[in-house]
């Protein structure tokens, strides 16, 4: 918390604003309040998922199973709501959080407990969770006809001019901001990823951190699962397929280092907003969705090039005069 906003984040924010304005010149409708509100609503789930993914990447991990978790949890709560139509929505959401947390905990336990690399574990659970959707639903699609009014209504509801999705994303963002800057556990995640050995010397446990971040990623995926299924009124095995890559891309564009230890809440939110704007704007100015993928890809590479700190191996300071120079050269 040395600075609230870094220069890099300011640049990214500037790029997003510039992009919005430029697109507005070509398609003025893009700048309307309704449209901007829609873009933010449309990006809300991505923001939440990217923030959770950020905590994972901070610890030098990766969670590829988040979209599969989203789809499985979405299907399970849709089935639950069909079986028990009277269930209040807060209970449905709670169940979604719990299912998601459970699926995430499985990742955390496998990674922290058995020491299996995160990419392998989550690649495995990705496939398992996707497969499970097909099994629990017997291969069926659930559409809005299978869901109750209340179940479908929540994501479309509005409070004070903003969609409930936006409000949820806002609450989650504030929650993550407080967690990452004002709690020992949150600051410990930076320590674990930045220098695992030093973290151990400080009594910060890598394993506990891992269990925590994968569970957290799962919990948010579960919540997103309900929001997604209810918003689009459909649940099947392939929803959000490949979405984990968009989530990871948001983090990378937002300045989260894949090498761990670096990343901020604000940067990650900006990264997600960037992709949200690109996704919503390009169709409007008649650019095909295929270009959209190429643009996202190019931006990811550009972001990584910006992030790459000089990789040269620093020389050791052994000579007496070199040590003196290093000690005296700094203010």
């Amino acid at each position: 918390m040395t600075q609230i906003v870094t220069r890099r984040e300011l640049v990214l924010a500037f790029i997003i604003v510039a992009m919005v304005l430029l697109i507005g010149v070509r398609a003025p409708v893009f700048l309307s309040f309704d449209n901007l509100r829609f873009v933010v609503t449309d990006t809300s789930v991505l923001i939440m998922m990217a923030l959770a993914q950020m905590t994972v990447i901070l610890t030098r991990g990766i969670d590829l199973s988040v979209a599969a978790n989203l789809a499985l949890t979405g299907m399970l709560v849709a089935l639950l709501s069909r079986a028990l139509p009277g269930l209040p929505i807060p209970v449905v959401m709670l169940v979604a959080l719990l299912i998601g947390a459970g699926l995430g905990l499985v990742n955390g336990l496998l990674i922290a407990g058995l020491g299996i690399p995160p990419i392998v574990v989550t690649l495995g659970t990705l496939a398992i969770y996707r497969g499970a959707i097909f099994i629990v639903a017997g291969g069926a699609w659930l559409t809005s006809k299978d869901m109750t009014e209340a179940f479908l209504a929540f994501p479309k509801a509005e409070f004070l001019g903003l969609s409930s999705l936006t409000w949820v994303a806002l609450v989650v963002t504030i929650g993550f901001y407080v967690f990452m800057t004002l709690t020992r556990t949150g600051r410990g995640l930076y320590a674990v990823g930045g220098n695992p050995v030093a973290a151990r010397y400080c009594g910060v446990s890598l394993r506990l951190s891992q269990v925590l971040v994968y569970t957290l990623a799962g919990t948010i995926s579960g919540l997103a699962g309900y929001l997604w299924v209810a918003r689009f009124g459909i649940a099947y095995a392939d929803i959000g397929i490949g979405y984990e890559l968009t989530v990871i891309a948001s983090c990378v564009i937002g300045g989260v280092s894949i090498a761990g230890g670096i990343g901020s809440v604000i940067g990650t939110v900006l990264g997600a907003l960037f992709l949200g704007v690109v996704a919503n704007a390009l169709p409007l100015i008649n650019i095909s969705p295929f270009w959209q993928m190429a643009i996202s890809g190019a931006v990811i590479l550009a972001a990584v090039i910006v992030n790459t700190r000089s990789e040269w191996k620093p020389q050791k300071l052994i000579l007496h005069e070199a040590r003196r120079a290093a000690a005296g050269g700094q203010k």
Binding site: T181, L182, R184, Y190, G194, N195, V204
Partner: peptide
């Protein structure tokens, strides 16, 4: 020195035992 380059001096010094307030939040 076993430390965290990306964090502040204060965080480096208090990593693992940061002072917290009554709500359990870090007392910056």
């Amino acid at each position: 020195p076993v430390m965290f380059d990306e964090l502040s001096v204060a965080e480096n010094i208090f990593m693992g035992h940061m002072p917290v307030d009554r709500r359990g939040l870090i007392d910056w």
